[in-house]
Simulated assay, not measured.
Amino acid sequence: MQVLGIESSCDETGVALVRTRAVGTPELRAHALHSQIAMHQAYGGVVPELASRDHIRRVLPLTRQVLDEAGATLADVDVVAFTRGPGLAGALLVGAGVACALAAALGKPVLGVHHLEGHLLSPFLSADPPEFPFVALLVSGGHTQLMRVDAVGQYTLLGESIDDAAGEAFDKSAKLMGLGYPGGPALSRLAITGRADAFALPRPLLHSGDLDFSFAGLKTAVLTQHRKLGDAPTPAQLADLAASTQAAIVEVLVKKSIAALKATGLRRLVVSGGVGANAELRRQLDAAALKRGWRVHYPELALCTDNGAMIALAAAMRLQAGAGQASMDHAFDVRPRWPLDQIDSPAAPRVS
Rank of each mutant, 00 (worst) to 15 (best):
A169N: 05
L121N: 11
D329K: 14
F82S: 10
L218A: 11
Q65S: 13
P123A: 07
Q41V: 14
V77Q: 04
S140L: 07
K255M: 01
A38D: 15
L290W: 02
F124M: 15
L261K: 05
L60E: 12
S35G: 14
S244I: 06
L218Y: 04
P133N: 02
G184E: 04
E251M: 01
L179Y: 09
V80D: 01
R337D: 01
S126Q: 13
S272T: 06
A347E: 14
L158Y: 13
C100T: 15
R282H: 02
Y298S: 10
I258H: 05
A22G: 11
E69P: 00
T234Q: 11
G159C: 06
P339L: 10
A200K: 13
D212L: 03
F332E: 03
T264W: 01
H114A: 02
L206I: 14
D164T: 02
E117F: 09
A22F: 04
L157T: 15
T144W: 05
R282Q: 03
A260M: 00
G141T: 01
A259N: 08
G183M: 13
P86L: 06
I6S: 00
T13G: 04
V3I: 15
V296G: 12
V110S: 08
N307W: 11
Y43Q: 14
H226C: 07
E251P: 02
S126V: 13
Q2C: 11
L146P: 05
M1Q: 06
A103Y: 05
V79F: 02
E300F: 04
V46I: 15
S8V: 13
D68A: 15
D11G: 14
L190I: 03
I343P: 00
Q246H: 00
P233V: 07
A38K: 14
R21C: 11
G85W: 09
P182W: 12
L319R: 09
E131T: 15
S214I: 14
V250E: 00
L340C: 03
L50S: 03
L281C: 09
A96F: 07
D171R: 01
I192R: 14
